[in-house]
Write a protein that binds this DNA or RNA. Structure first.
Lengths: 341, 341
DNA sequence: TTGTACGCGTTATCAG
DNA sequence: CTGATAACGCGTACAA
C-alpha cells in the first residue's frame, strides 16, 4: 500500500501545490494573494499546479493566522422569508462577492435573545464583518461585538446611537411623509394599521410618524383608528373590515407594510368596496404586486437592494483600514403615488 | 506599557480560560465539547471562567485540526429573492441550528458556472456539508464535491443520478398530476405557461409532465398552447392575454409557477374576464396570496419547509457517521383544489 | 524575488 | 479523569 498516510485522495494542500510547481509554499501563497509580487514564471507554474490539482485554499488556516481576513461575513435578519430582507441580502452578497467575501446567514425570528445567541455562534467562525437588520439589542450583543473588534453595520432604522456603522432610512420620516401626503390629498379621517409596536422598533417609529403628521395637521388622534397586528394578507383584510365599520367613516388607511395593504385591497375587491372612492389605501415598501392591481396601490419605495450594497461598501472601507467613525448613511425613501389614493 | 503584546483587549483564548479555571486547556476543550467526560468540579470551574471572560470558541482552529466538524454548512439557491427557496432555507437553518451548525448562503443566479465558482469559494471555508437546489451541474462541480468528501444534498428535483443525497419532489409527476386533474374536470383545450425550459431542468420537467398528461388523455399537443417566459406577475398577465386570443378558445391554463398564475389572475380581474367561466387557471406552489383572491387559485402545494428540514436531517446522518448510499427522499406534493378551476 | 522558521488556537493521542 | 505534546495549513517576519 503506497498510501502516504492520507486516508482518501482529498483536498490538496498548499505544500503539494508547491512541490508540483517546484517552488516553496510561500511562493504559492504569494502567487495566489498578490500575483504582482512574484515573477511571471513562478506565477505561471503555480497557476498550472493549482489547476491540475484542483487546489482549494484553506481559509481556516489563513484566518487563524490573519484574523480580520477570514473572507467571511455574517448577517442576521429578522426573518429569512420576508422579501424585503431578501432584497437587502442580495445587495449585500453581490457587493461582497466582488471582493471574495462569502456570507453566513441566520434569522433572529424577531427576538433579541435569539439575535444574541446567533451572534455568539457566528463569532465562533471569526467573521470579518457583521450586518444586523435590527437596531435594538441586548446588552450582551454590545459586549460581543465590542470584543469581536470587527465592523458592524445596522440596516433597519436610522437610529441615533448605532453600535458602529449604519445604512438605513428613517421609518419615522417615511411614515410621516406618507401621512402628510394623505392629508395633502384632503383626507381627514386617516387610519393607521401597522405591526405590533411593542415588539419592533421599526413599527414603533412608523406609528410615531403617523401621529406626528396628524398632530402637525391639527387632526385628532383617535384610538379606534390605530390597529396593531402581525403582518399578513389575512390581517390586512381583517383590519380594513374592522375600519370600515367605524363611524364616522374612515376616509383613508395607511398600512405600514405592503403585505397588509395588499390583503386589504384583495378584501375590498372581494366585497366590491371601491378604492379610493369609499376608502383610500396606502402601503409601505412597494411590493411588485402592489402596482399590478386594477387599482394600483400608492406606497413607499425603500431602496432595499441599495441598503445591502452600501452596507457592504461601508464594511469594506473598514476592512481596508479606515478607522474613524464613519457617518451614518441615509438612503431615503420615495412616495409612489398611484390610483388607490 | 504593561501591554502583553496583544493590541486591544480582544477575544479570550482557550488558554486564558484554562488559566482562570486552574485547569489545562485540554480540560477546557473537553468540558465544552463533551461535558460528561470531565468531573463535575472541572465542568463548573470551566463554565464559570467561560462566562466571566465571555469566551467565544474559535472554530477556525477547531476545524483546522478536525475537518468535517467545522459546524458550518453551505447552501446555494438559484435566487435569494424567491420565496420558495426561502422556505426551504428556513427549514434548513432551523434544523441545523439545533445542532449548532451555521449556514453560509449564496445564490447562483440560475447559472451553472456561477454555481461552480461559488462552490469553490465556499469549500475554502471547509463546510461540513453542502446543499444545492439545482440538480444540473458542470463537470467541475462533480470534481469539487468529490474531492471535498462532504455530504451534498440536492433539493430541486427528483433526479435519477444525484451527486450524493437527495430530498425533493418530482416536478414531472406534479405537473402531470395537475394536468390530469384539469383533464378530469373536463377541460380539453389546456394551455401551459412555464419558465424557459432550456435554462432550467425543473421547468423542463414540468413541461414534460404537462405533455405526458395530454398525450395519455389522447389530446393533441399544440404549439400555440405552450408559452415559455421568465417568471413575473407581468409575464403571467401577458401570457393570459396572448392565450385568450387563440382560436378555438383555450379553456384552461396551467401556470407552472404561482407568480405567473397570480399575474394572470390580476389581469383577468382588471379586464373583467370571469374565472373559471371564461378560462380556468391553475398554479404551482401555493403562495399565500393565491388563496386570498375573490376566486382563489387551484394550485400545487410543495412542502418546501420540509425539504429543508429533511435535507438537514440527511446531512446530519452522514456527519454522525453513516456511510452507505442513503436512498433519495420524495416529499411529494398535493393538489389544492379551489374555485379557479 | 524567494525561502526558512515559527506561531495562530484548537484537538487527537497517549501517558499518567 | 487529566495533562503534555504534536500536529492541522497557512501567513508574518525576517533572512538570503
Amino acid at each position: 500500500m503506497p498510501n502516504k498516510k492520507r486516508p482518501a485522495a482529498l483536498q490538496a494542500r498548499m505544500k503539494e501545490v508547491a512541490l508540483r510547481a517546484k517552488v516553496s509554499a510561500m511562493s504559492v501563497s504569494r502567487a495566489l494573494r498578490s500575483p504582482d509580487q512574484v515573477s511571471s514564471e513562478t506565477l505561471r507554474r503555480v497557476q498550472k499546479a493549482v489547476r491540475e490539482l484542483g487546489y482549494v485554499p484553506n481559509r481556516l488556516a489563513g484566518g487563524l493566522k490573519a484574523p480580520s481576513r477570514t473572507q467571511l461575513a455574517a448577517a442576521i435578519v429578522p426573518s429569512l422569508q420576508n422579501s424585503l430582507f431578501a432584497a437587502t441580502l442580495q445587495g449585500l452578497t453581490d457587493a461582497l462577492r466582488k471582493r471574495g467575501i462569502n456570507l453566513m446567514l441566520g434569522d433572529s425570528g424577531y427576538s433579541r435573545e435569539a439575535e444574541e445567541s446567533l451572534i455568539a455562534a457566528f463569532l465562533a467562525h471569526r467573521p470579518c464583518g457583521l450586518v444586523l437588520h435590527d437596531t435594538s439589542h441586548t446588552p450582551g450583543v454590545r459586549r460581543l461585538v465590542r470584543n469581536a473588534g470587527i465592523p458592524v453595520v445596522e440596516t433597519g432604522n436610522l437610529v441615533n446611537r448605532p453600535l458602529d456603522l449604519l445604512v438605513s432610512y428613517s421609518n419615522f420620516a417615511a411614515a410621516r411623509a406618507m401621512t402628510d401626503y394623505l392629508v395633502g390629498r384632503s383626507y381627514r379621517r386617516i387610519a393607521f394599521v401597522g405591526q405590533i409596536a411593542s415588539l419592533n422598533e421599526r413599527a414603533r417609529e412608523r406609528q410615531r410618524g403617523y401621529r406626528a403628521a396628524l398632530t402637525a395637521a391639527g387632526l385628532p388622534l383617535e384610538e379606534a383608528l390605530t390597529i396593531e397586528t402581525p403582518g399578513s394578507f389575512e390581517n390586512g383584510a381583517k383590519a380594513i373590515v374592522q375600519l370600515m365599520g367605524v363611524r364616522p367613516k374612515v376616509e383613508a388607511v395607511f398600512f405600514a407594510g405592503d403585505v397588509l395593504a395588499i390583503g386589504a385591497m384583495l378584501e375590498c375587491n372581494r366585497r366590491g368596496w371601491e378604492v379610493p372612492k369609499q376608502v383610500a389605501i396606502a402601503g409601505f415598501d412597494d411590493w411588485e404586486i402592489s402596482r399590478r392591481f386594477a387599482i394600483p396601490i400608492t406606497t413607499l419605495d425603500i431602496p432595499r437592494y441599495q441598503i445591502g450594497e452600501r452596507a457592504a461598501a461601508l464594511m469594506l472601507r473598514r476592512l481596508d483600514g479606515e478607522r474613524g467613525k464613519l457617518p451614518p448613511i441615509d438612503v431615503g425613501f420615495r412616495i409612489i403615488e398611484r390610483a388607490s389614493t
